[in-house]
């Protein structure tokens, strides 16, 4: 990363430093989805751990029920897979629009 740098400028591909245009829009939604993915899943487990009252992990969430299921069990077993589906739908809708916008600008039919 020193003398190559200038030469590399033109074809640089980096998730954390996307180039202008389509890639930037794509990376924004990717990072947003990944945040939603990580926070809901790992975040909930962390909350469960923080609120645990004994080594088994029982706490407020294990006592509450939802759809007859203990709340934490419902959240992990049923809601999280659904949440992943929702994330994928959001991603696809956004990417469809992004692609259409850029295709129109290039005056090209869709893919």
């Amino acid at each position: 990363m020193n003398r190559h740098e200038e030469h590399e400028e033109k074809y640089v591909v980096n998730l954390f430093n996307p180039k202008q245009g389509y890639m930037r829009g794509e990376v924004v939604i990717i990072l947003a989805i990944l945040v939603g993915w990580g926070v809901m899943n790992f975040g909930f487990q962390a909350v469960l751990w923080l609120l645990a009252e004994n080594p088994l992990g029982e706490g407020i969430f294990t006592r509450l029920t939802f759809f007859n299921l203990p709340y934490h069990f419902w959240f992990t077993a049923q809601f999280l897979p659904l949440w992943f589906i929702i994330l994928c739908v959001i991603f696809n809708v956004y990417l469809d629009r992004l692609t259409e916008r850029h295709s129109r600008r290039r005056d090209r039919t869709y893919e």
Binding site: E8, K10, Y11, V12, V13, P18, K19, Q20, G21, Y22, M23, E26, T99, H102, S103, R106, R108
Partner: peptide, 17 residues
């Protein structure tokens, strides 16, 4: 190689630019 990096930048990530 330059070709591979160009391919990545232009085809894989820049197909609509």
């Amino acid at each position: 190689s330059d070709e591979m990096r160009r391919f990545l930048a232009e085809q894989v990530h820049g197909h609509l630019d």
